[in-house]
C-alpha cells in the first residue's frame, strides 16, 4: 500500500520525464497559418457595469418592487429553488442600461450589471448584486464560493444536452430552439431524473423550474463524466463548459434550472446554493434572482 505522500512523489517524479520541446516544424506550421487566420473581434464583455443614472436606478428599483408585488416571494428552503409561481404572464417593464460600460470580472462592486455575451445567454439581462459577489470569467456569478453559504447564478445558452447523463461517451442529443424543446430533452434524458416542471416567472416572463437529480437506481461509479462525483446534463459543443450535477451535494451548490420564454427566445438560468446556506443567504440569492430583467 502506497501512502498519499509516496503516490504524490512518484507522480511528480514521473511527470518530470518526457518530451518538452515543441518541434520546429510544428511552430513553423502555426506561423505559416497565421497570415491566413483572421483574428476574431471580441463581443461585448460578458459582464458590463452599467453606469446608470439615478433616474434609471430608481426605475430599476421600482420595477423590482413591481415584480415582487406581482408575484410575491417564494423562499428557497421549501421550493428547492428561486423563482415564484406564475400569477401574471405579462412581462415587467425593464429599464434600458446606459451605453457607458466597463468590463467587470472578479469581485463586483454593488450595482447593476448586464449579461449579454451570446455564448452565455440568448437574451441579454440585467441583475443587481449587493457586496460580496464575484463574476467568474466563465460567466458564473457567485458569492462565498466553497463556503457553507455558497450562492450561485449561471446564465446559459444551452445548445447541447447529453442523451445519457451517465453515458460512456459524450452522445449529445439534438435539441430544438424553444423552451419546451429543452424541457422535453431534460425529461427524456437517460440517467437523470427531471422534476415535474413548475410554472414560474423570471424577470416577468413565463418560465419553467426544473430540478435535475441522480436517480436512486443509478450506479454513479459507472458514469463517464466524473465517476461517483458528477453526472452530465449539458455542455457547450466543445465540452469546455458543463452543467453537471453532483451525486452528493455536500460540497457543491444544488442548482435549479429555469427555462424562460422571452418573446419566443429561450433563456436559461441556473440558480442555487449549498444546503448549508443560512436563511439570510438564501434570501439574498432570492433578491438577486428577483432583480433579473431581460432586455429582449
Amino acid at each position: 500500500m502506497q501512502t498519499d505522500r509516496e503516490v504524490t512523489r512518484i507522480v511528480r517524479s514521473w511527470m518530470e520525464e518526457g518530451a518538452t520541446a515543441l518541434p520546429d516544424r510544428v511552430l513553423d506550421a502555426v506561423l505559416d497559418q497565421v497570415p491566413a487566420t483572421s483574428q476574431r473581434r471580441s463581443w461585448w464583455p460578458s459582464w458590463r457595469f452599467t453606469d446608470m443614472n439615478n433616474l434609471l436606478k430608481l426605475a430599476m428599483g421600482a420595477a423590482a418592487v413591481l415584480v415582487v408585488a406581482l408575484v410575491g416571494y417564494n423562499l428557497l428552503p421549501r421550493s428547492g429553488g428561486v423563482g415564484a409561481p406564475v400569477q401574471t404572464p405579462s412581462p415587467s417593464p425593464s429599464p434600458s442600461p446606459s451605453p457607458s460600460f466597463e468590463a467587470a470580472t472578479g469581485p463586483l462592486q454593488p450595482g447593476t450589471y448586464i449579461v449579454d455575451d451570446p455564448t452565455l445567454t440568448t437574451v441579454p439581462f440585467t441583475l443587481t448584486v449587493p457586496s460580496g459577489w464575484t463574476a467568474r470569467d466563465d460567466g458564473v456569478i457567485v458569492k462565498a464560493e466553497d463556503q457553507p453559504a455558497w450562492l450561485e447564478i449561471q446564465p446559459w445558452n444551452v445548445t447541447h444536452t447529453y442523451a445519457d447523463a451517465c453515458g460512456a461517451e459524450p452522445g449529445f442529443a439534438e435539441i430544438g430552439p424553444t423552451a419546451d424543446d429543452l424541457v422535453r430533452a431534460l425529461e427524456d434524458q437517460e440517467g437523470s431524473d427531471a422534476s415535474t416542471p413548475v410554472e414560474v416567472t423570471v424577470g416577468g416572463y413565463p418560465a419553467k423550474r426544473i430540478v435535475m437529480s441522480v436517480p436512486v437506481e443509478q450506479d454513479p461509479s459507472t458514469c463517464r463524466f466524473a465517476p461517483n462525483e458528477l453526472i452530465q446534463i449539458w455542455a457547450n459543443a466543445e465540452e469546455t463548459r458543463w452543467f453537471a450535477i453532483p451525486v452528493d451535494h455536500a460540497s457543491l451548490p444544488r442548482l435549479v434550472v429555469y427555462v424562460v420564454e422571452v418573446d419566443g427566445e429561450r433563456a436559461v438560468i441556473l440558480a442555487g446554493h449549498k444546503d448549508s446556506a443560512s436563511p439570510s443567504a438564501i434570501a439574498e440569492l432570492q433578491t438577486v434572482f428577483d432583480s433579473i430583467a431581460f432586455q429582449p
Partner: peptide
C-alpha cells in the same frame, strides 16, 4: 479550467485515488 475549486479538489482526489489504487 473555469470550474469551481470544489470540482478541482474532487477531480484531483478521484484521480490520485485511481492512481494509487492502480499502483497498488
Amino acid at each position: 479550467l473555469g470550474v469551481p475549486p470544489g470540482t478541482v479538489r474532487s477531480r484531483l482526489h478521484h484521480a490520485m485515488r485511481g492512481l494509487r489504487a492502480a499502483l497498488d
